[in-house]
């Protein structure tokens, strides 16, 4: 072995050299680099977790927003419906009022016409009575008792009215 270079003290030196190098490299090199790598991995993991949380929160918020929009739409439709019903009620009321006014106007007009007609009929009857008496006086050449004959004429006219109505 000595020919190959085996040497106890050198072996011990190499053992010490390597052990010391192992410790120093671990303290000076590997440990700091691994610490930095761990820290970086931790941050990346944290960022990933945070992104996950934000995504979940965003999905939740989106859901809430959708719900709010849905509620608002429903509420809006209810308001529109209420407004429509109110408008309908107002329209019906106005229509009813207008109809009542028109009916009242027509009734008044009809009453007026009736009254005018009654006046005209009375006028005509009166004139017709006078005319009939005058005509009869001319036929009989004497004066007639006006009051007496008037009753007769009235009766005749009434009968003629009745006949007229029956004829219709």
């Amino acid at each position: 072995m000595a020919e190959l270079g085996f040497h106890w003290p050198s072996l011990v030196v190499y053992l010490v050299n390597f052990t010391a190098l192992l410790i120093i490299l671990y303290m000076v090199g590997f440990k700091p680099i691994l610490r930095v790598l761990d820290e970086r991995s931790r941050r990346i993991q944290e960022s990933r977790d945070q992104a996950q949380v934000l995504q979940e929160e965003s999905v939740m918020r989106q859901g809430e927003m959708d719900q709010q929009i849905k509620d608002a739409r429903k509420e809006g439709q209810a308001v529109i419906e209420q407004a429509r019903q109110a408008a309908q009620r107002v329209r019906d009321g106005e229509r009813e009022k207008a109809r009542q006014e028109a009916d009242s106007f027509i009734s008044k007009a009809q009453a007026e016409i009736q009254r005018e007609r009654d006046i005209a009929v009375d006028e005509l009857r009166r004139e017709f009575g006078d005319l009939a008496i005058s005509a009869a006086e001319r036929v009989v050449r004497r004066s007639l008792d006006k009051d007496l004959h008037k009753d007769l004429i009235e009766q005749t006219l009434t009968e003629s009215d009745l006949l007229e109505k029956d004829g219709k």
């Binding site: 270079g5 072996l11 190499y14």
Partner: peptide, 12 residues
Amino acid sequence: TDLNMPLALAII
């Protein structure tokens, strides 16, 4: 190239 160095590593 020194036998002692590989031997030391082998022992470790």
